[in-house]
Amino acid sequence: MRKIMIPAALIALSACAAAGEKEIPVEQRIANAAPAVSVTARGETEPVGTVNDDAADDPAIWRNAADPKASLIIGTDKKAGIYVYGLDGAKKTFLPAGAINNIDLREGVSVNGKPSILVAASDRTDRMQAKLALFTLDPASATLTRLGTLPVGTGEAYGFCMGVVGGAMHAVVVIKPGKIVDMTLDLSGATPAIAASREMTNATLSEGCVIDDRTSQLYVSEEDVAIWRFDLTQTQPAPVRFATVDSKILVADSEGLAIASDGANGGYLIASSQGDNAFTLYRLPAGDYAGRFRIADGKFGGTSDTDGIELVQGDFGPDYPGGLFVAQDGHNAPHAQNFKLLAWDDIKAAVGVK
């Protein structure tokens, strides 16, 4: 993720071009990009504890089906650990966990024979040895309990996502610059283990990823190049170009990814078009362009330089009746970085999609 320079009028993004080329100001990137409609946030979280630094990174969402207003948001401070927030944005708990970067969760996972909410994250505390950190979430107390840490491989852990493929829990860690490690987890014993592992590769820096549990497709953002799709049902998945970083519809860096399901195999893939502070929607499964939006100033501030995003559909109470979209905000002055909360219904209405 790029650094933010203050004041806001002087926000600049680090160059995606080759060394020696001039940096393109964010204002010019916005002007050159395809139009994006404005949507405002309905809420925001408290700032992360690390100040004056690029710290907040990636969110995950747990929806409380029995009491939607009691749902939880999990967000990483990649310099310090993991926060658990309520829908009001207030911090409930914080777990010091080191340099946790990207995070994801799945509910109803059998952990040591008990149905659990599994939370996992890329752990870059050791920049030479990538690791996967595993936790369970207790929704009643909004606390995380450590399950353990698994070795992933040589290098710095960066992106992360997980999903169910063929009934097995898969965890994908993206190691800088573009090694993609897909692990099948064994959570049946007292300590977690890796049942199987395989590697795929993007040529350059990659981070954001998401697994579509419906189709077993993995989507990975190669930041300055494309969004790639990998079929995890294949023994050795080959990359298929899903969308191109073209400086119009998707502006480098291509960062966080999230999926909006239509209940079948369609819906939308949402990508953070970080280079022009926007978000791009692509129709699934084909990848047709569906629209763009920005999070603008309103009751709460807008977002810029967004890295991690997450979307969970369903009832989250009166403020988010059709689903909750959470986006990291890279510039939340005068406070530290935080996460903005939007209603999925507001985004659909603004973009003009169903």
Rank of each mutant, 00 (worst) to 15 (best):
M1I: 12
K3A: 12
I4M: 04
P7I: 15
L10S: 15
C16G: 11
A17T: 02
A19H: 07
E21D: 14
I24G: 00
V26W: 10
R29V: 06
R29S: 00
R29P: 02
P35F: 13
A36G: 01
V37H: 00
V37L: 02
V39M: 07
G43M: 09
E46H: 09
V51A: 15
D54Y: 06
A55D: 00
I61E: 02
R63V: 06
A66L: 08
A70Q: 11
L72I: 13
I74Q: 01
I74T: 01
I82T: 10
I82G: 02
Y83I: 13
Y83S: 13
V84C: 03
Y85I: 10
L87Q: 03
A90P: 01
K92A: 08
P96R: 12
P96M: 12
A99D: 15
N101H: 10
R106C: 03
G113P: 03
S122N: 05
T125P: 00
R127N: 15
M128A: 15
Q129M: 14
A130P: 06
A133H: 04
L134G: 09
P139A: 08
T143H: 06
T145Q: 14
L147T: 15
L150Q: 02
V152Y: 13
E156M: 07
E156D: 10
A157C: 10
A157Q: 02
Y158W: 04
G159E: 07
F160E: 07
C161P: 04
V164N: 01
A171W: 00
V174N: 06
I175G: 05
K176G: 06
M183N: 02
L187W: 06
I194C: 08
A195W: 01
A196K: 11
S197D: 02
R198T: 03
T201F: 10
L205V: 11
S206F: 09
G208N: 13
S216H: 06
Y219L: 05
V220S: 06
V225I: 15
I227D: 00
R229H: 03
R229T: 03
L232E: 01
Q234D: 04
A238L: 04
P239R: 10
V240E: 10
R241G: 07
A243N: 05
V245M: 05
A252I: 01
S254Q: 08
S254F: 14
S261G: 10
A264H: 04
G267K: 10
Y268D: 02
Y268M: 08
G275D: 09
D276Q: 08
D276F: 10
D276A: 07
N277L: 07
Y282F: 14
P285H: 12
P285L: 14
A286W: 03
Y289A: 11
A290E: 01
A290N: 00
G291D: 04
R294C: 03
A296P: 03
G298W: 15
K299L: 14
F300S: 07
T303L: 05
S304D: 06
D305S: 08
D307Q: 11
G308N: 12
G308P: 12
I309Q: 02
I309T: 07
I309V: 15
V312E: 02
Q313N: 11
D315F: 07
P318W: 13
P318A: 12
P318Y: 13
P321A: 09
G322P: 05
P334G: 03
P334K: 05
P334I: 10
A336M: 08
L341M: 12
A343C: 11
W344V: 03
D345F: 11
D345H: 11
A349R: 08
G352W: 11
